[in-house]
Design a protein around this nucleic acid. Sequence first.
DNA 1: TAGGCAAGCAAGCAGTTGCTTGGTAGCGTA
DNA 2: TACGCTACCAAGCAACTGCTTGCTTGCCTA
Lengths: 190, 190
Amino acid sequence: MPRRTELLGIAAELFAEKGFTNTTVRDIADAAGILSGSLYHHFDSKESMVEEILTSFQARLFEAYDEVLASDDDPRTKLERVVRLSFEAIDQHRAEVAIYQNDSSYLGGFERFGFLAERNAQMRTMWTDLVREGVAAGVLRQDLDVELVYRFIRDTVWVAVRWYRPGGDLTHTDVADQYLSILLEGISRA
Amino acid sequence: MPRRTELLGIAAELFAEKGFTNTTVRDIADAAGILSGSLYHHFDSKESMVEEILTSFQARLFEAYDEVLASDDDPRTKLERVVRLSFEAIDQHRAEVAIYQNDSSYLGGFERFGFLAERNAQMRTMWTDLVREGVAAGVLRQDLDVELVYRFIRDTVWVAVRWYRPGGDLTHTDVADQYLSILLEGISRA
DNA sequence: TAGGCAAGCAAGCAGTTGCTTGGTAGCGTA
DNA sequence: TACGCTACCAAGCAACTGCTTGCTTGCCTA
């Protein structure tokens, strides 16, 4: 693995754990076993590190989403697959998701991180379209506030990164199963 | 209003907006129209400001929770009331909830903020007990993973502080209605 | 009208921050 | 053996951080 990639991984872990601004370049350098100045041989700035971490993660994530959306599955299946994909992303890219969850509101304030808002809009379109298709197809309730349903799903799925631990008792599939069951059927007794 | 209270309000808004560590004492002083050093006439430290903000908020919140729990409502009604109370707290104490959401993992690392973990445990007991009572009473599904249901509810409710805007189109009651409807009945067509 | 007090100013200190500069060690290759 | 490249070191700078100190101002009240 190229040193550059290695360093990005170390930085991502620290950003996820302590937050972007609370992580100093000296923290990253210490964890890598080098001096802080040496980091600037590999990267322009601390910001360019997060930028690279987030963009490459999002690129992979949306590629996976697009594959589902392009399929000819029915709306409900697509919705399920997208939820499962998201929990899988939390499992396999914990640090990246955590950074996205915790620091994107701060980072979004800088021009160079405008792509965050774009991806958010893309995400919103994806979810609301899926819900609307489900309603149109008659598999989802007609009285839903699509925008609210989108927010509830998005929040519950992504915030799970705060408590989900890869390798624990619950697999990401377990979590997705339970969540989909609750989301689709509710918690009331039939 | 005492100057002290006024300053806490200003600080809370800034903490909520930019995060605790990203808010400098000079930011707070500027917003209050005084010099940074003058803040120390009112408070020991920046940390004691957040501490006071969070403890007083949580005290009021749990007081309201306790009233519901002590009532003789049935489990499902209690669950509904607690959800509604939480959305109401987001509406009326946006800044405090936002600080609690965004900075408690960082603050929790300091000894003086141990009360955050205690309140978290208290919150967890409250929710899981409510769900278990609902299951026992036969109004909630028997196959629920109580711990997971608790996490999903907690996350969805509190993270709403990120997008809910008091005075907007949706009242906190609207949001609570929709969420309870989804949570209890699911989004699938009956 | 003298005393006490809440509120704030002016100046600065020590530590931390992201980042820069000029240099070097080691390795592969021509 | 000279060259170029990757990876890093050593030292430090300017800006910013939370906080301290000694002092002043204006108001209330006894």
